[in-house]
Amino acid sequence: MVKLVAALYAALMNLPERPMKWAQSQLSGGRLGWVFVGPNLAIFAIFTFLPIAFDLHYALTGGTQLLPGDRPYVGAENFASLLDCTDHFDPNSCRRDLFWHGIWNTLAFVGLQVGLMLFFSLLTAIVLNGRIIGRSFFRAAFFYPVLLSPVVVALIWKWILQREGLLNAAMEGVGATPVNWLLDGNWAFFWSVFVSIWAHMGFYTLILLAGLQSIPAEINEASQMDATRPFRHFTRITLPLLMPNVLVVLVLGLIRAVQIFDEVYVLTGGGPGSATTFVVQYIYKTGFADQVRQYGLAAAASLLLASVLLVLTLIQMKGQGGGKQRG
């Protein structure tokens, strides 16, 4: 088997030998490097750089045509329509009320989800960094959901949360009244936050645990010799030294949370009503799921989302730079 793979690998990799040799003879110095980065760059150009330019074009044109040439120029009309509200705090007063439901839901989601996830992943990382029997087992258990497809995650919880599901059975078992978890707006929102924390927490725990383990044991021992009380040790030694990792978790978590879509879409479909409709779902719905595909609106909403993500990414890069200097 191994031999077969090796032979296959050699046979395939031998194919470009002659053209690459020819390229090598034509290009002097390091310019052969362009041939090696070429494929990657081309794919980036087609599926990342070009689309950004098109995004702008779509956002500034109207109609339902997909081909850029067929679309009439409408200026900032798409943006204006998205932002048109009598009261921005009341989505129902907006022309694109679903977009504004999405925005306020996303904001609430981001605040709750990132805050709670940071708390629980930090707690878990600290616990796992202690004297624990079976540490690698527990670490694996907390990490496992990270690998699951968001659709699988959503279905696992949908099965538990349905009207005649495990949770309601357990509630009735202890004498409580069963609840239609996903048909009540507030509960559906709560479970969106919960399920998304459940699915992603292990990843952030791992980053924080790696940070904790990179604090030298001797630093902790020196602090112990210095008679530092546990709480002061945490606030004055552990937390400052863990700060670069906390910042990574915070910003990565924010970037992900702002783009929440997959698991919630499958879990609740954005409902009930618009209780769990988020910005990305608005983009998907407007551009692809509605009867009339309004590409311009979807692109404009994408660009608004992109500007938020850009700011977050810049913060992250700055934070990581600072972290490196410290390390």
Partner: peptide, 15 residues
């Protein structure tokens, strides 16, 4: 912490 000893570590272990 209460033995009244002070330790100088191999890696110095400065904060």
């Amino acid at each position: 912490a209460r033995r009244g000893l002070a330790m100088v570590f191999q890696s110095y272990a400065l904060y």
